[in-house]
Design a protein around this nucleic acid. Structure first.
Lengths: 211, 211
DNA sequence: GGCACAACGGGCCGTTCGGCCCATTCAGAT
DNA sequence: ATCTGAATGGGCCGAACGGCCCGTTGTGCC
């Protein structure tokens, strides 16, 4: 049960360092991927026990890659790696189906231990991550994430930036009608009746940034 | 230089307590006012050296009363009294011309000392207030206050609360046209072109509260 | 007394907005 | 194989909005 591991990170140096560390801990690294798409392909081809996946990667985001891997290959576990214990990213990763969550400055022993635990069916997180999780759970009554779609979020952000419907349409290369459709959907989801209320709610919910 | 003092506070109990405390410190209390208007009238009639003024009072707000007293009677000093060391209220009070600012849970000795200092031409604040002031000064580059008029602020708040122009008019007992006029003025002052932008700026500037 | 400004208001007009109907396409879920 | 949902789009319409003109009243300031 040492575990066959696939590494997914866009930094070659980090991948090689991880490979050495894991192999020193008698964990077999069966492949390396440089982006989310490659991770998905290699996971299907190699069927590792665990994917050690960086959060931020080109082409396909680590969280999205995790979601797809867990969907198509439920027997493949995923451990997320990230620079900082960011609450919202962590929440997204866990909802995407990650079984482990590590911050990059943890020890190699900790990484190896987490890989073994996860390969054995357990879930595990760094101590830093555990602390963040408590904060997250305490402060978040419902699911705040995923209320509005990604496209709707873009529309909201542009509205918050001062754009009119026409300008949003221009920015996103879509018709004004589509913008209005997105807004209508947003109003329903956020229980708002106009752009002003929608933007205010979005600001309060942290969906958009201001200024 | 013990000082002739006018008390202005809407709570009789507090006024009487203050009177006893000050008289025990050999400070003469020449009158008591229960609201801002009365404070203004008595200040003109009695010409005290110092007015000990509560921030929140009926009819006329303590800060506004202070502004008018200082305007008409520059030789009358005002010391503000408040429940908490609230940064924005304090800033308003100081701009209105208050020479002292005390939180209500300070000792009677402290109050007496402040009254004497202010009567002698000095300015004085509680320790708690001094701390708040530092924060205030550090975080505020320009004058944020007074960009929009009080009425315009009310309109903005109601818009932020989700009201349409018609509903704002209803709430404030004015016509829709006047609301639109206020909004037009607000757009100019806040460099916004619609209610959404205006509310967002107002939120960022701390003019309105959300939720 | 005059001057500025806040607050109040009327009317007009073009644009925008939001609600309502509808259709197509494509991906993912069951 | 079907179905949901996201994203794209059209058309229509009434209400809301914002800009523009104009006015009166009151208060504070010089």
């Amino acid at each position: 049960m040492s575990g066959r591991v696939l590494l997914a990170d866009d930094h070659r140096i980090l991948r090689e360092g991880l490979r050495r560390s894991l192999e020193a801990q008698h964990i077999e690294v069966v492949g390396e991927a440089a982006d989310g798409d490659e991770a998905l392909e290699l996971a299907e081809a190699l069927r590792p026990d665990v994917v050690l996946m960086d959060v931020s990667m080109p082409v396909l985001d680590g969280v999205e890659a995790t979601r797809r891997i867990r969907q198509r290959l439920p027997e493949v576990r995923v451990v997320m790696l990230t620079m900082h214990a960011d609450e919202t990213t962590m929440a997204r990763a866990i909802r995407a189906g990650a079984d482990g969550y590590l911050v990059k400055d943890c020890s190699t022993e900790e990484i190896a231990e987490t890989v073994r635990l996860v390969a054995g069916g357990q879930t595990a997180v760094s101590r830093e991550v555990a602390v963040s999780m408590l904060r997250e759970v305490r402060s978040m009554p419902p699911e705040v994430e995923e209320v509005v779609s990604k496209r709707e979020e873009e529309v909201l952000q542009l509205i918050a930036d001062g754009c009119s419907s026409a300008e949003v349409a221009e920015q996103l290369f879509i018709s004004q009608k589509t913008v209005k459709n997105h807004l209508a959907s947003i109003y329903q989801k956020l229980d708002a009746r106009d752009r002003t209320q929608a933007v205010l709610r979005a600001v309060r919910m942290g969906i958009v940034r201001l200024g």
